[in-house]
Design a protein around this nucleic acid. Structure first.
Lengths: 211, 211
DNA sequence: AGAATACTGTGAAATATTTCACAGTATTCT
DNA sequence: AGAATACTGTGAAATATTTCACAGTATTCT
């Protein structure tokens, strides 16, 4: 067994597994082994099992894990049982794509509002949640106790968006835009397709050169 | 100085810095220190300097780095000087958003084609690159020596998309869809907003509980 | 011109993370 | 029913990564 703080790589992998378990359940499997999970994720079975050491001791054994029980155990450990409120800043193509993503509602994340500084856009778009002008971010986040923010604005507006979210009391940010400065109480996950493509290029290039 | 294989976390940070340097150059700075870079990225200055140890010895010193020289040094080290060819599979909202992203052309990544299995969609959309039916992925990737693929299809189609790319000789994949099984010569970068939101929730929750 | 400052570069130490090796055990097979 | 199998859980070892501490040096200040 294991307690103490959970290492960040473990939290990341547990979340990846959590999502994967939906696929596995959809496929109809009722048992899954650490080896199989590791293969799907590109991790070793040892690592997966060590990660599971942070879950409440489940007396799993000998024929792998039950996907349903695993999901429950992970949800409990990472606090994914209660629904989290989120909002999205920037309703361009990317923001709209995220807003329209059907997965959230069933998965413990509720997108509660969308914001954009272009009021025209707010009128044209339709959504099942309120779409509001950006100057209302702080108030709205505060009033509705929104915990997570997604930033999908052009890079010059990223810092303003972050500042408004933070002033409203946001706890974490997924940022598709340029990196933003935040106090170290706020966690930021940076996402950039361009960076990822470069990382791939870099990994490929450096492993070719130095075998 | 330093050679040998470059650690993956270093490649990742160097790519993040590479992108950040464009912002810094745009702001008009001609000098940037490891401390400043670290603050923007949420890393320590030590780490940044260690990372730079993998760059060709630049005799930078004492008043920080020149953003331009840094960019060149990183590009050289990671092979980002030559343009890389990429393609995108799946032309839903997300795929369209990526395809329309203006940053690539100026940044050493060229999106050469888009694919979708819905031929209607191919006719409706317009783009500056060919939009083709998905069964042509393998041929096209092979013929045009496309190195990187972006998968933005519904989860059930992800594995097929990956298989076609791999058969065509793709070297790396950025995958917005469900995790895919690939031979270990292929590198995959998995991107999921839902996972990122859960990671944030998990990090926040576990650090609250165990201070 | 000389002193103070603000950096970098880098071995060595500290820490975090992964991998190994194997005992223990439910399940499956004959 | 007994043997073989296929797992998990976990200390210990190995490895990777980060942090520290500080010497060296160009730049800025007085």
């Amino acid at each position: 067994m294991n307690s103490g703080t959970i290492p960040q790589p473990t939290v990341e992998r547990l979340c990846a597994i959590y999502g994967l378990l939906d696929d596995i359940i959809a496929e109809g499997s009722h048992r899954i082994s650490s080896t199989q999970l590791g293969e799907r994720l590109g991790e070793s079975a040892y690592t997966i099992r060590k990660d599971f050491g942070f879950l409440p001791q489940g007396r799993f054994s000998s024929a792998g894990y039950s996907p349903e029980e695993l999901k429950t155990a992970i949800a409990e450990t990472l606090g994914l049982k209660e629904e989290r409120s989120a909002c999205i800043i920037g309703l361009g193509r990317l923001g709209q794509a995220v807003l329209a993503y059907p997965g959230f509602s069933t998965e413990g994340i509720a997108i509660r509002a969308g914001f954009d500084s272009d009021t025209n856009k707010l009128e044209i778009l339709t959504a099942s949640v309120p779409l509001l002008p950006s100057y209302r971010i702080t108030d709205y986040v505060k009033e509705h106790k929104i915990e997570l923010g997604i930033i999908a604005v052009p890079s010059k507006q990223a810092q303003t968006a972050a500042d408004r979210l933070i002033e409203g009391g946001i706890q974490g940010i997924v940022n598709f835009s340029s990196p933003v400065a935040v106090p170290d109480t706020i966690r930021v996950r940076q996402i950039s397709v361009l960076d990822e493509l470069r990382i791939l290029a870099g990994l490929i290039y450096t492993s070719e050169r130095r075998p």
